[in-house]
Amino acid sequence: MSASTSLKPVLPPEIRARKGGDPIVVLTAYTTPVARLVDPHCDVALVGDSLGMVVHGLPSTIGVTMEMMILHGRAVMRGLSKAMCVIDMPFGSYEEGPEQAYRNAARLMAETGAPAVKLEGGTHMAPTIAFLTARGVPVMAHIGLTPQAVNTLGGYKVVGRGAEAEVLMEDALAVEAAGAFSVVLEKVPEGLAARVSRTLSIPTIGIGAGVGCDGQVLVVDDMLGLFTDFRPKFVKRYAELGKTADDAIAAYAADVRARRFPAPEHAFADILPAKSAAKDPK
């Protein structure tokens, strides 16, 4: 949190209390400058493990490490004054069991100052969520498409159609009962997501889950047009900063090659030594 402000940051109980109220605004952030941009407008800044793909060029989120999440978590916390920071627990840091999950969640919180973590999984992760919340670790759950399980799911597909609908509802009820203060619904059919949102007493945060959720989250690089490797259907581009940056870099390169940059106004004049007085011939 910035030392130059007296704003009170949002905390998990406040997010939980927003159920059924004004929609909750969430964006990812991975760096201090982006955190500063997100902070005035969002309720939550999510340090998502998507940073592995959009910042580090990995093919999926599976290769993200605790050290990467801590590094970026610290950077984001330096840029926040109001929004709540939530940090993803990376693949392999919590699946082994509640004790492993607690050790790593406690480390994320202690080494970054973030007040909450997010982990993927429904019914099978409920005991872990309960273990964490009972020990002072606020948890944002994540069900539906869970990117860390992409190899098991067989791709980034919609989750919750047909017979899967009741399984997803069971997952939602399980993470709520375990003590999660909110739950992300990713790539879930719109009608099902709305039904889950009406059923739960905790807020739902949708990403590709329709307008019926209690809030929405997007990857900031997606909505700004900075990450262009692929574009999910649920992403709305609010800017094309990647194209703007490409044009700017091309103009810079052209100026350097044509010796138009640096121009005189970008350079420093030499400071010549003062001329010594002529010696008296006497």
Rank of each mutant, 00 (worst) to 15 (best):
L119H: 04
L119E: 06
L119K: 00
E120N: 12
E120H: 09
E120S: 03
E120T: 13
E120C: 09
E120V: 12
G121T: 00
G121N: 10
G122V: 02
G122R: 01
G122E: 10
G122H: 01
G122K: 02
G122M: 00
T123F: 00
T123N: 00
T123M: 08
T123C: 02
T123P: 00
T123L: 13
H124L: 14
H124P: 00
H124M: 13
H124R: 15
H124A: 15
H124D: 12
M125T: 14
M125C: 06
M125W: 00
M125R: 14
M125L: 14
A126E: 11
A126T: 03
A126C: 12
P127G: 05
P127K: 08
P127S: 08
P127L: 01
P127F: 07
P127E: 04
P127V: 05
T128A: 07
T128M: 06
T128R: 09
T128P: 01
T128H: 04
I129W: 00
I129Q: 04
I129G: 01
I129D: 04
I129N: 10
I129S: 02
I129Y: 02
A130H: 11
A130Q: 06
A130D: 01
A130S: 13
A130T: 03
F131V: 02
F131T: 04
F131R: 13
F131L: 09
L132I: 10
L132T: 09
L132R: 13
L132C: 11
L132E: 06
T133F: 09
T133A: 14
T133G: 11
T133Y: 07
T133E: 11
T133N: 05
A134M: 09
A134G: 15
R135F: 13
R135T: 12
R135G: 06
G136L: 12
V137M: 07
V137F: 04
V137Y: 02
V137R: 00
V137W: 00
V137K: 04
P138F: 08
P138C: 07
P138M: 14
P138R: 12
P138L: 10
V139R: 05
V139E: 12
V139I: 15
V139D: 03
V139P: 02
V139M: 08
M140H: 10
M140C: 15
M140Q: 15
M140A: 15
M140K: 12
A141N: 01
A141E: 07
A141V: 12
A141C: 12
A141S: 15
A141Q: 02
H142L: 09
H142T: 11
H142W: 04
I143V: 15
I143T: 12
I143M: 05
I143F: 05
G144L: 13
L145D: 03
L145S: 00
L145K: 05
L145M: 13
T146D: 06
T146R: 02
T146V: 15
T146I: 12
P147K: 02
P147N: 04
P147R: 06
P147H: 06
Q148I: 03
Q148R: 05
Q148E: 13
Q148N: 06
Q148D: 01
Q148S: 07
Q148H: 09
Q148V: 03
